[in-house]
Design a binder for these strands. Structure first.
Lengths: 229, 229
DNA sequence: AACAAGTGTTAAAGAAAGTTAAAAGCTGAA
DNA sequence: TTCAGCTTTTAACTTTCTTTAACACTTGTT
């Protein structure tokens, strides 16, 4: 059972864009074509993608800027740059902003496809793929069922509580960035959502207070960290 | 605390091979150079590598064959091909045998490095939580939990206090450069941040004053040193 | 000694986070 | 539709953390 991979394609050349879109869809990857960086970013925020193919030179917002903004919202999603320029500095810059690959035009569609596949193979493999049962300290957290148990009667969690706890678990012993959590769960990091998140942190702390080995600590100005020893 | 990445480099051109080996080692990646595919395979079996950089045209055993054999022994290890041929079929073949990337000569060493890093970033991801417990004098400092204990009731530290104390501990009995600390913790060594840091030094001194064997001394114009005897 | 630059220390102001409760929003059953 | 019961957001107040400011003291230099 494989998950359907959805591709965000940002390419201002309509002709090339449509050829690529058709090719990728024929190969089984639903693709959304965006004609400039700004539209691409809006699409990215609205829908759930699994892969980004970004042209660099685009009107309104260039590919580098776009990639930087996407990386802020999602550190994991693979990014592949397409570029007319083979220039060294551009390539290096591309990797600097978090790219997984950089392909120079002209390229063959087959090559684009195998490179996408090579990256996907690596990003899917680790056990990180939708693990829904987390164990830490004396707790066992079932994300799918939204249940948190620690010996006694399992605690039923609300959706938001479960989402937040899942993100914290995925970043166990590491800081979960505030804005990242807000964008993933609330889709927007505004002041009020941030306050809402704080309320949920308090709720989670109440659930977790039974085990002193587990602690949900704040990193001022950055985010929260679920610590277990 | 990062794991050391060891690279297997297969390249029959001694000149290029040594240049690459030296470059990669200068960048912190111990590299074993093998002059043909057969030797490379033997090296792979004998030692533990984390990354393969393979030339394609080599005597005795070509890079594709080598990669196939390596893949049989290890499905996870990243493989990057180097090739003089930009031929399409070769590239596709490379990815078919399980490559993560395919670089055509001539290439810049910087590009090789960033491509290696991009692949490693994706394969490493699982919980890189650095568990750090420092002990000095009568103190025990748990960075993750932001706790400093010395027998009695543990002192809860704030994020900035913990960051700074961690840097000082990592440079125990050595000078921690002011600007280094500022850049790592405040991301900018301006006058005001420097004053802020001084305030934190005072705070840390208060926490540390219980044990006379521990001292946080200033090195005028340079930085601070956490001294323990 | 005189001066400038660097550091020590304390207090305050400002920003971020903790907490609780009420308001608003949502969902399913009557 | 309306209502009850739940989730989520908003609001208000409290506490904590970080930065800024002020002033005193040190160090090194001329």
């Amino acid at each position: 059972m494989e998950k359907k991979i959805k591709i965000l394609l940002a390419e201002d050349d309509k002709n090339l864009g449509n050829i690529l879109k058709n090719y990728l869809e024929a190969k089984g990857y639903p693709t959304v074509l965006s004609e400039d960086g700004k539209i691409a970013l809006e699409n990215f925020k609205r829908e759930n993608f699994d892969f980004c193919v970004l042209d660099i030179m685009m009107p309104v917002m260039d590919g580098f800027t776009l990639a930087t903004k996407i990386r802020k919202l999602d550190q994991e999603i693979p990014i592949l740059f397409l570029s007319a320029k083979a220039m060294q500095e551009d390539k290096l810059h591309g990797f600097e902003v978090g790219a997984d690959d950089y392909l120079t035009k002209p390229f063959s569609m087959e090559e684009l496809l195998v490179r996408i596949k090579a990256i996907l193979r690596r990003s899917n493999t680790p056990g990180s793929s939708d693990v829904s049962l987390f164990k830490f300290g004396s707790f066992s957290f079932d994300y799918n069922r939204q249940l948190l148990s620690s010996g006694g009667e399992p605690q039923k969690l609300t959706s938001k509580e479960a989402e937040l706890l899942k993100l914290l678990c995925e970043n166990m012993n590491n800081v979960l960035d505030r804005t990242i959590a807000l964008n993933k769960i609330w889709f927007d990091d505004s002041y009020f959502n941030a306050r809402s998140m704080d309320v949920y942190i308090t709720k989670l702390r109440k659930y977790l207070k039974d085990d002193p080995k587990v602690e949900l600590i704040n990193v001022h100005g950055v985010g929260f960290k679920l610590v277990v020893d």
